[in-house]
Design a protein around this nucleic acid. Structure first.
Lengths: 158, 158
RNA sequence: AGACACCCUAUGGA
DNA sequence: TCCATAGGGTGTCT
């Protein structure tokens, strides 16, 4: 046995959507762990679910939240999302500003989806998360898989 | 020939914008006269132009200025604008205050666009102008036309 | 603190 | 083409 860091590396792909927006929605996440299974394949977890009525952005946030909550212990995470809304909130310091300003946007209006943002902050705190924005139609096979899963999840709530 | 008043009635639609703001800008105006042409259609004048660098507010003011300057003789004018900046300057007495205070704002700072405001005052003096504020996306077809013209004008200066 | 306008970005859809 | 969900900013005034 080799010694190993207690921090695992995880790559996560997330997506979410509603049709129409707002309306029935779905989200999905694929977690790829560094650990291998007995066959030598990268361990993987897949999550998906839906709701009868939501918004595209809430589904994008939910996908990331559920993925982070599905981690067993502290992890170094690369989380891929096609949502600028989500990626910029972390990468452009939006969340820090909102927390300092009492959750008001730059135009002094209440930040939407505050409940999810706060859960997301709590869930991300335990880990070292890198938020990676990926262009919507970038052709990455993993992203196409997640997209399919969102459609499947959503279909059960139409 | 019928006798007619020397004062004509004119309805004017104006708009202006920059993209980005500040940046390349355009303005446009549609003037609808009461006179009919030989086909019995309301006579109409359309104006538009652009500049390489300006601000949204300067473009809104310019649209109104150029429209008033395009009138042949004294007129009763209904001028439609979606700019509160422009409409309030005339309707809320801002301009009167500025002239009395040596072109200082309520917070003692120099009024911006003084050059355009002064030309506008001069141009409006010859007429009886009613400044009508219209909500930006009110769905009025004439306003949509003017909006299109602004885009066209601006496009030549990008 | 308020208002209007001008935009910029991405996603989700019809 | 259109709309909705969301954010950032500037131009201007009271």
């Amino acid at each position: 046995m080799q010694p190993h860091s207690t921090v695992q590396d995880v790559t996560i792909y997330t997506d979410g959507g509603c049709s129409p927006n707002p309306g029935p929605g779905g989200w999905a996440a694929i977690l790829l762990f560094d650990e291998k299974d007995v066959a030598g394949r990268r361990k993987e977890k897949r999550l998906k679910d839906g709701v009868y009525d939501s918004t595209n952005n809430r589904m994008e946030l939910t996908a990331a939240l559920k993925a982070l909550e599905a981690l067993d212990g502290p992890a170094r995470v690369e989380l891929h999302t096609d949502s600028r809304y989500l990626a910029n909130a972390f990468n452009q310091g939006w969340l820090e500003n909102w927390q300092e300003n009492g959750w008001k946007t730059a135009s002094k209006k209440p930040v939407k989806n505050k409940d999810l943002w706060q859960k997301l902050l709590a869930a991300a705190e335990a880990h070292e998360v890198e938020w990676i924005w990926v262009e919507g139609h970038a052709g990455d096979p993993l992203n196409e898989r997640v997209d399919d899963m969102v459609g499947q999840a959503r279909a059960e709530f139409e």
